[in-house]
């Protein structure tokens, strides 16, 4: 066995195994780096850019950059958190995120990251896009107003469920979640409510029908606990050291 390799994250020494990303190593050491499109079960994606860190003077996504011996990484700086806040605000104004009427509220990672960053206002001018809601499926609601294009459902359906139910169509600000059917309806895909893709959404874009508002306000996942301390199930990763 060779000696454990380490890098520095905000002055803390983080051990890592060869090939691990900064995000993976940090999670294993119990250090939270804000993220939305990252999920430990899936291939790194690097699109939300919330996990941007300073890697030896250069900014990069912690979820796609590999840890290297002696690397100096900064995450919790005022400047980086200001960028993260701006990115989160961009995600809010880009869609139609009306938390008071959302079933996912309190358990939503977009909201939780915004709380973590102390977001008081979405700040930027709202786009108020016109997006389709698809309630055709008997068990799953597709609420595109809340989609942040993280592609977790795309990856889950393709890589875990082996179904390719979801994809991203269009480009730029017109990019949108599309489904694998000629009609464009979720009901005409082979999505099942037990699919990984049906429950991996970090926001309320893909939700189980008839399961909303089951937990009272105050008792939901992020009501009293910061996402940094209360990561969603399966996100903790093996703790080391």
């Amino acid at each position: 066995m060779s000696q454990t390799k380490t890098f520095s994250l905000d002055g803390r020494t983080i051990p890592f195994e060869e090939g691990e990303t900064i995000m993976e190593a940090a999670a294993a050491a119990g250090v939270y780096i804000p993220h939305l499109c990252h999920h430990p079960e899936f291939k790194p994606h690097g699109s939300c850019k919330l996990c941007t860190v300073n890697i030896g003077g250069r900014l990069g996504a912690a979820c796609t950059n590999r840890a290297a011996e002696g690397m100096q990484v900064e995450s919790e700086t005022e400047a980086i958190n200001a960028d993260r806040l701006a990115l989160t605000q961009m995600l809010f104004v880009e869609g139609n995120h009306i938390c008071p009427s959302c079933e996912k509220s309190g358990n939503c990672q977009l909201q939780a990251v915004a709380y973590h960053l102390g977001m008081l206002t979405p700040h930027f001018t709202h786009f108020y896009p016109s997006r389709d809601v698809d309630a055709s499926h008997p068990d799953v609601l597709l609420e595109r107003n809340r989609c942040i294009l993280c592609e977790l459902c795309v990856r889950a359906s393709r890589d875990v469920d082996g179904k390719n139910v979801f994809g991203i169509g269009g480009r730029g600000i017109k990019a949108r979640l599309i489904v694998n059917s000629a009609s464009g309806r979720l009901a005409d895909t082979d999505l099942s409510v037990t699919d990984r893709a049906a429950e991996v959404c970090p926001t309320g874009a893909i939700i189980r029908k008839r399961h909303g508002f089951t937990v009272p306000i105050g008792h939901r996942l992020y009501d009293r606990r910061d996402i940094a301390e209360a990561p969603v199930a399966g996100m903790e990763g093996p703790k080391r050291g």
Partner: peptide, 20 residues
Amino acid sequence: AHESCGFCTPCRVGTSLLKH
């Protein structure tokens, strides 16, 4: 704004905000 691929948040949203 027209040519942004839409993959990452800053470019997808930021180029449109700049345009507006």
